[in-house]
Design a protein around this nucleic acid. Structure first.
Lengths: 258, 258
DNA sequence: CTTGCTATTGCATGAATATGCACAAATTGC
DNA sequence: GCAATTTGTGCATATTCATGCAATAGCAAG
């Protein structure tokens, strides 16, 4: 019998809640090998402390900030999680890595291996807050004006700060990847920031969820020639990937296994 | 009987705690061949020194950066909410305001009137994320290295960025306010950042929750002469406030009404 | 060497806490 | 509506906790 302290268990519940956006009493009781009563009691107590919101069958996040974030995560598609996990695996100890804003990048942060010593540079306060709970990574936050729609920092001061950084890898999230038009996104300022981040990293790896492939958005970030890698889901057809493969881009496939 | 000095044993407990993230009283007593009482006594003493956190069944680390911060957030006392609300009321349309990190500052962000057009400068990603949902305020985020314990940005680049800003008001959170020693806080780097922020603002207003008054922490931020205002709860006694009043500091009382 | 003091440890007791089970009430899905 | 699941409550049991007290060992002074 592995001793699991009560307060530790409560923290675990909150962690699961933060990471998945919800907890189900029955599932938890099975995973932890305890009776549902105990879990329910925990949930009740946590709820009375205002740390989560009790609902039938389990619980949901309480605070608006957490909730917003968690709900975005809960809608984070399975594809994004897999891509995030595959990206996290590419990061080596001691590297300096730039993480973009966006939901897929959050998944990378979530899946960074415990104990990995690395430096994460980001212009997303969401990512920064997310990484607070990761003991061993150093976080460098790019400053500037906050662009609320995407919750990332933009503007000239940000570009200036970025220019002073030389990173190993930049994981870029986009809204369109197209053989002819390259990487594109939906905001003018963000396009410039992404371009600057890419210029500051030795390698630029695109997080290519299926719906982004061969799509085009209004603002061009850079041509595919600047790209060194792509991460796609394993099911992506070979013919869809062929043009990128021909350009010498390293394609990583995110498989399904947990 | 192998002689194990008490202090040696305590160090061992802390080592185990650091390595495994938890200690269980029963397991320890078996491994060390001592009664559970002795172990519990040790745990109690270590807890009273703040070197670990006592829980039922054993102990957990004192301040896992994230857990600590999260719990501090959730225990936002009624006093802090009132002070936050009172501070928010002081902000005029069009002003440029610097918000510190910390729980009280989060309360200010939460209570900013809907529709208020202002610019908020902050070195706290938490505050930045909090203000995303506030349509009309502009957010400027100071960049730099993230200090996880307090979840704020610190370091030379941050100081440099701050120097380029001229704000109207800086709301500063501290851990000690004392007539003789001035403003103090618990971290060396944070003290410097707070000093820089204060220098960049025309007015510096201290968020003085009751437990901070006449308390002193290790690192000095600046003397009271640099302070222009204080926000305290209405119940604070006049004699406690007299020394600050005599220095010409504007004292705002946060009343109870919602 | 002995005496007295102190610190440490172990034990006993009552109190507090945690957990599981049973049963009635409430909620949900069909 | 009705059946199935989920919840809350009361209760029993097992740990775990805190306190007071006694035994032991170390130490210093006489």
């Amino acid at each position: 019998m592995i001793a699991v302290l009560t307060s530790q268990r409560k923290q675990l519940i909150l962690d699961v809640l933060r990471q998945t956006g919800k907890v189900v009493a029955k599932e938890l009781s099975q995973e932890l090998g305890l009776s549902e009563d105990t879990i329910r009691r925990d949930l009740r107590e946590l709820a009375s402390e205002g740390r989560l919101q009790r609902v039938h069958g389990g619980a949901l996040p309480a605070s608006p900030a957490m909730g917003d974030f968690a709900s975005r995560l809960s809608v984070a598609s399975e594809e994004k999680k897999r891509i995030g996990k595959a990206a996290a695996k590419l990061i080596q100890a001691g590297q300096v890595v730039i993480l973009d804003g966006g939901t897929t990048a959050v998944q990378i942060a979530r899946h960074l291996p415990r104990g990995l010593k690395a430096t994460i540079v980001t212009h997303s306060p969401t990512i920064a807050v997310e990484l607070v709970s990761h003991e061993s990574v150093e976080v460098i936050l790019i400053g500037g004006r906050l662009f609320k729609h995407s919750v990332v920092v933009v503007g000239a001061p940000a570009i200036e700060s970025i220019a002073k950084i030389r990173a190993d890898t930049y994981f870029v999230g986009v809204t369109g990847i197209h053989p002819q038009f390259g990487l594109t996104t939906g905001d003018f300022e963000e396009a410039h920031i992404k371009k600057a981040l890419s210029a500051s990293a030795a390698e630029t790896v695109v997080l290519a969820s299926p719906e982004k492939l061969n799509a085009v958005s209004p603002y061009v970030i850079e041509p595919l020639a600047e790209i060194t890698g792509m991460i796609v889901v394993a099911e992506t057809s070979e013919e869809m990937l062929a043009p990128y493969f021909d350009l010498g881009i390293t394609i990583t496939k995110a498989s399904q296994e947990s």
